[in-house]
Design a binder for these strands. Structure first.
Length: 760
RNA sequence: GGGCCCGUGGUCCAGCUCGGUUAUGACGUCGCCCUUACACGGCGAAGAUCCGGGGUUCAAAUCCCCGCAGGCCCACCA
């Protein structure tokens, strides 16, 4: 019999040391497109640890269903977050630091942060290939990213254009719509009087500092207050400029005065109007985030400062009618938190508007788990309105592989294959068509999603390893969190369809957020972040994994409470002790010999069916909760108690005794296999000690047809007897007078032994 | 403004697709018990207007409508 009375998490490392997870690259693979986590600070998010624990459950489930699982692991190391982290940590500014020096500092930060993440992944027992970690900032990865850029460039799917774009002056770069989020912020809606003939027209705006860039006023054509006014001129306060009044349906008569000033650029609507009305664009805000010369007296100020000053000036000059304090949704950079300005810049774009229908069609071929999260992608597809700006004025990213001829300005891309750094390297090709031989390297880098969106191609050896690619691509499954559907999931579908024509995976598994104990989003700035490592060290990976699986439904947000994680240990202790009991008796290899034994095998069969169904959807919540319910409240509480005397051979013949022992082992073997993907340490530890070998080489149990007696009122009857003994002050060992209820006659021998029933 | 999700004992969660037993289980709480697997346990107990209001029905947590309260996503109301 197993001597220890409880599961010891300290055994975990030793058990993991024996694991080997083979992958046969010559056979069709079950590829998991594992999310490469982004090191952006410490501690790593405990919700992410839960996320990776569950991704590992997917891999283990697939193996136990006979799949040839290819489970790579990578780290996403390009882009803004680590740059911001490094700037803060070193108290430096990127643009004021020599480029190579800044890159080296970022790399140091990444190495530190990465080792912590890998440590978490290892302690969780992840069965991915740690011997072959990929990094998106490696020369090999970046060469592949650049090769995709070069190919898209040659196909005309990448182009350069100057257009108003989301600009984050704090990080000094353009960002894509997908990187924008909206936050409710305080703002002042200023009602100003514009001159109009002898009188005036009132216009409300939250951006009065842009008056210098106002080039039109629009009113709704159906607005009676402004009938016949099209073509009239309004006089802009402060600047005195005369601008035309135009009809436009986007002016809402019911908001403010119904008249709107159109400036370059207050918001996306202004962008559309400038284009549509053919207005002259004015750059009121520069790339440094300050007002330009066009702002006259306000030049050099931040827009927020200029706003305060111009409001004061407007008030003094008597132009202000009233000011409302309002809260409205302001677009901010998701990664820096800075309010985004719209500034015209020349940038590289990847065509995507022409692919939206294609991606929508392809999404129909992907099974979503849970199905409801498909909607997140469809919603996003509906809102893709412009091409994807991919150039970033940042350092730590994959360099855009372009050189420009210094004579004619022509852009050249090199042959794909090598990793290129145009800002530091000479143009590797021949002279320009114009005869020019001097070239200037591009200094910008690519949006980090350009790297991570080819992860399924990269891990499958696309363009580099034909054998692996045939086996591993398209991938089987993409697991990821729901907050990056519009970025990682969408961009990956876009890019893979552009480059390969196929859909990158057949299934997408979308997980919810990890919230704090009160249900609020966790963040370092809020101070409610939880470090996963100390928790995992204290309670063990299996307890953490079991908590994660059983805490919330598949795809739902979940709360991270240490108290609840601790309590997951109790289940492991229970499993340990049930196994300990079984380990005290040999498995005779026969089972189901009595009514009671056939009953529990029927209960087990129902459990196996429901777990098989749940496993096919990678729904570990259903697995964890239904196995716990069965193991604890049915098998241990009722069956084991009923079969105990019989298994000991006390008052039963050898056949009945052996059937009890065999049935206990049969159920236990099934339970250990059912639980192996969720809690791989304890199940493997027990399996090895009791049955030899590794549970992870086994298959999940299959349903078996059989003649299974129903439960009937069995559980209630047991409870009733326990209750009766309790209320009469009897010990559970004391005999009691009670008859066997109708329908439970088959259980009589075991019930009589268990409760010491005497005929009434 | 549009959309998606959600609201069940102190806490978390199941059930709702295909209406019908005393609404599932866990955590926590309380009481009793060391019964030869387990005190990291066993048994028992207390604890729920199933968000509110209408409707359909013999019957609603479950279906329909209207609200209210959350969460999230999208969006050009300046």
């Amino acid at each position: 019999m197993i001597p220890e009375k409880a599961w010891d998490p300290g055994l975990e490392p030793g058990i993991a040391a024996g694991w080997r997870h083979g992958f046969d690259r010559s056979r069709r693979a079950y590829t998991i497109d594992t999310p490469p986590p982004y090191p952006s600070g410490r501690p790593w998010h405990i919700g992410a640890a839960a996320h990776y624990a569950q991704i590992d459950m997917i891999a283990r489930t697939a193996r136990m269903r006979g799949m040839n699982v290819y489970f790579p692991v990578g780290i996403d190391r390009n882009g803004l977050p680590v740059e911001l982290y490094t700037e803060k940590k070193r108290k430096i500014r990127m643009h004021a630091t020599p480029r190579q020096e800044f890159l080296d500092l970022c790399r140091q930060s990444l190495d530190e942060l990465e080792s912590e993440m890998l440590e978490v992944m290892r302690s969780l027992g992840m069965s991915c290939d740690f011997g072959n970690i990929y990094r998106t900032d490696s020369a090999e990865y970046r060469a592949v990213t650049q090769a995709t850029f070069i190919r898209l460039w040659r196909e005309g799917r990448v182009y350069v254009s100057t257009r108003p774009n989301n600009y984050d002056w704090k990080s000094g770069t353009v960002i894509a719509d997908a990187e924008i989020t909206h936050e409710e912020r305080e703002s002042r809606l200023v009602h100003m009087r514009f001159g109009l003939g002898e009188g005036s027209i009132t216009i409300a705006s939250t951006r009065p500092e842009l008056l210098c860039a106002c080039r039109a006023v629009i009113v709704n054509p159906g607005d009676e207050r402004y009938a016949g006014m099209e073509g009239a001129e309004a006089v802009v306060p402060i600047t005195g400029r005369r601008v035309p009044i135009r009809y436009h349906r986007s002016a809402r008569p019911d908001f403010g005065s119904g008249a709107v000033m159109v400036c370059s650029y207050g918001d996306q609507n202004d962008v559309a109007l400038f284009r549509e009305l053919g207005l002259e664009e004015v750059a009121a805000i520069g790339p440094d985030g300050r007002m330009t010369e066009a702002a006259g007296a306000y030049a050099g100020l931040r827009p927020s400062q200029a706003r305060e000053k111009i409001i004061a000036d407007l008030e003094e000059a008597g132009f202000v009618e009233e000011i409302d304090e309002i809260r409205h949704m302001t677009p901010v950079s998701e990664r820096s938190g800075n309010a985004v300005e719209i500034i015209p810049m020349e940038e590289y774009y990847v065509r995507q508007t022409d692919m939206v229908g294609d991606v929508r069609g392809a999404s129909a071929d992907i099974a979503f788990h849970p199905e409801k999260h498909r909607q997140i992608l469809l919603n996003w597809l509906d809102s893709v309105g412009m091409d994807w700006p991919v150039s970033r004025r940042r350092f730590y990213g994959t360099e855009i592989p372009v050189w420009y001829c210094e004579s004619c300005g022509m852009a050249h891309v090199p042959e794909p294959g090598e990793y290129r750094r145009p800002w530091a390297e000479e143009w590797p090709g021949g002279p320009c068509g114009c005869g020019g031989t001097k070239f200037r390297g591009e200094e910008r880098t690519l949006d980090t999603w350009m790297d991570s969106s080819i992860s399924p191609l990269y891990i499958s050896g696309w363009n580099r390893d034909e054998e692996l690619f045939r086996s591993a691509y398209p991938a089987a499954l993409r697991p990821q969190a729901k907050d990056i559907v519009r970025t990682w999931l969408y961009y990956t579908m876009l890019r893979c369809r552009q480059l390969d024509g196929r859909t990158p995976w057949s299934e997408a598994w979308i997980m919810g957020y990890g919230l704090d104990g009160r249900g609020h989003k966790m963040s370092k700035s809020r101070g409610n972040a939880m470090d996963p490592l100390p928790v995992i060290r204290r309670i063990g990976a299996d307890a953490f994994r079991f908590w994660s699986a059983g805490e919330a439904g598949q795809g739902d947000d979940f709360r991270c409470s240490e108290e609840r994680m601790e309590s997951a240990r109790k289940f492991l202790t229970k499993l340990w002790n049930v196994s300990r009991f079984a380990s005290g008796m040999e498995d005779p290899g026969t089972s189901g010999g009595t009514h009671t034994d056939r009953w529990i095998l029927g209960e087990l069969d129902a459990l196996v069916r429901s777990c098989q169904d749940a496993y096919s959807r990678y729904d570990f919540f259903t697995v964890a909760t239904s196995v716990r319910e069965f193991m604890w409240n049915v098998f241990a509480a009722h069956y084991v108690e009923m079969a105990k005397q019989r298994a000991a051979g006390e008052g039963f013949d050898d056949a009945a005794r052996d059937s009890a022992r065999g049935t206990i082992h049969r159920v236990l073997r099934a339970l250990l296999r059912l639980l192996a993907p969720v809690i791989p340490f304890i199940t493997d530890g027990l399996w090895g000690r009791m049955y030899g070998g590794s549970v992870h080489s086994e298959r999940l149990p299959e349903p078996e047809e059989g003649d299974y007696p129903p439960r009937g009122g069995l559980l209630d009857f047991n409870s009733e007897i326990w209750n009766r003994k309790k209320s009469s002050g009897l010990s559970l060992r004391d005999p009691v007078r009670a008859g066997i209820p109708a329908g439970l006659e088959g259980f009589a021998p075991d019930l009589e032994a268990m409760h010491r029933l005497e005929k009434p």
